[in-house]
């Protein structure tokens, strides 16, 4: 009996498009501030804050509140577990696409 390709066990936290894009961005760089992530995702401030909080609760993201001179800055960093989870999610997607002949 052949197994059908499935995304049933995919990480639901990352399967949300905005959150996967957030981690995609952070996996390519050291850190990014709130404004950059907002512009890249097209989310409102409220929505982005919610997504960042969920990722932080899961341990995929670390939020650092700092200053650049006198300007307050909210910096987001991907954590090692976040990087691992994102890579795993990406591999899963790729396998699913390959198995379905996409």
């Amino acid at each position: 009996m052949s197994s059908h390709p499935s995304l049933s066990d995919v990480d639901r936290l990352l399967h949300e498009p905005s959150r996967s894009v957030i981690l995609a961005i952070l996996s390519a760089i050291k850190s990014a501030d709130f404004l950059y992530l907002q512009r890249e995702t097209g989310l409102t401030k409220g929505n982005l804050t919610i997504h960042l909080s969920k990722l932080e609760e899961a341990g995929y993201l670390r939020i650092e509140k700092t200053y650049r001179g006198k300007v307050p800055l909210t910096l987001c960093h991907i954590t090692p577990s976040g990087r691992e989870a994102f890579e795993g999610y990406r591999q899963q997607l790729k396998r699913f696409v390959d198995d379905t002949g996409g």
Partner: peptide
């Protein structure tokens, strides 16, 4: 950059060194 880029696009720190 502080006057032009950061207020428009935001701030990004690149991976550095052996990272």
């Amino acid at each position: 950059k502080q006057r032009i880029t950061y207020p428009r696009t935001g701030y990004v720190a690149p991976l550095q060194g052996f990272e």
